[in-house]
Write a protein that binds this DNA or RNA. Sequence first.
DNA 1: ATCAGTTTATGATATATATCAGTTGACCCG
DNA 2: CGGGTCAACTGATATATATCATAAACTGAT
Lengths: 228, 228
Amino acid sequence: MAIECSCDECELKELFFQNISASEMESLCQSRVEQNYDKGDYIIEQGKPVEEFIYLKRGLVKLFITNANDKEQILSFAKPFDFVSLLSILSKKHHSYSVMAIEDSTTCNISIRDVKRIIRENGKFAMSILEKMSMVSDNVIDESLAIRRRNLRGRVAYVLLHFYRDIYKTEAFELPVSRKEIAEYIGMTTENVIRALTEFRKDGIIKIFGKVIEIIDEHKLQQISEHG
Amino acid sequence: MAIECSCDECELKELFFQNISASEMESLCQSRVEQNYDKGDYIIEQGKPVEEFIYLKRGLVKLFITNANDKEQILSFAKPFDFVSLLSILSKKHHSYSVMAIEDSTTCNISIRDVKRIIRENGKFAMSILEKMSMVSDNVIDESLAIRRRNLRGRVAYVLLHFYRDIYKTEAFELPVSRKEIAEYIGMTTENVIRALTEFRKDGIIKIFGKVIEIIDEHKLQQISEHG
DNA sequence: ATCAGTTTATGATATATATCAGTTGACCCG
DNA sequence: CGGGTCAACTGATATATATCATAAACTGAT
């Protein structure tokens, strides 16, 4: 008797659910829930109990923490196939970070208990999760160091290149974030992010149409990203 | 026939090698190598292949990356039972970071292949590794955010409190790092770290005898750490 | 004991970034 | 239609931090 499970066709199966048996897959498939979010919706709220293992199928999200003065610090932007809830869910009872959709998004949610059970029962699956997790954490840390060693212009250039190369891959794209959010990500003020963008525009490196940015001189932007 | 293995008495067994069978333990015990390092020795060199799973039994180390201009950025300081090589060893072929002993240190090294084998064969062990790993990465990320949201004085205060509370637990202790290394950790210049320390001394918050720091007013230091 | 190199320290100045104040334009709501 | 809010933007000024120069104390090697 063949088992019907839409997960079989899911791209995430390749990436993530390797080394998993048909019956384990079926069990996950039964319990998983797909969830849609509009831009601006919270997917995870800081402080809430960790109940589900969540990953992103579609859209774009930001991970951030809200500090004592209600200011946000953005940790990273994640696109599909980045495992957004992977960072702390295995060691903490409550979420350390919030996750918000910055574009309309779809997640696939699995009970954290089920995932933990399969990890315990299936070492190969555990190994592949460990590898992925290791990669995600590394990326967040690398990004943070990359930002830290740059000055204002370098940081803004870095962010633009990130959206251009890693996410949209087209010279003209609509920024999914406000200038304020860029500032919260790179740890500078909104005004200075705007000033840097204006400078790039005046120098003919980019064009700006509101939220739409067009990369004119990628090479120059790369130089600024490296040397400020 | 009882198995002789000094690992049975190792404190790390409790923390780390939970859920491991006697035969697995014996196999690890056979292949493990203990290594001593003097202050200043490299334990791991950035770019070298990942061959061993390393953790710290004794001493104190710094994790850092060396950037294009040969400047060091210190990621974190790790004390025994922090799993120093855990961050990227499972996903990368080469070390992303260097690790150096900043006090005389002892590590216990296990072939990465053996660890991976046991992860695959023993899901419970895998689960406990995942939890630890999750915690270590989280700490690095949290620290980085904690530093980022502080100003110079707050950052220096934060570091002093870190050494005082998490490592030495005694009012007077010898800093295991130079002012330059503190600067590399908190992302400020050496001169400004020194200036902040001098200010604290003049305000009667600490005493300075070369590398020895004595915490006089922890409460005040805490306030500075929080509010700059 | 001496020399070279490094760490700690301090002051003067330059520079980068934050803060504050205010303008404009888009969008939403009554 | 008017009023309110918010994001994007700009300029003036304040502040924090970096840079540069210098010197004393210390460290290691010969």
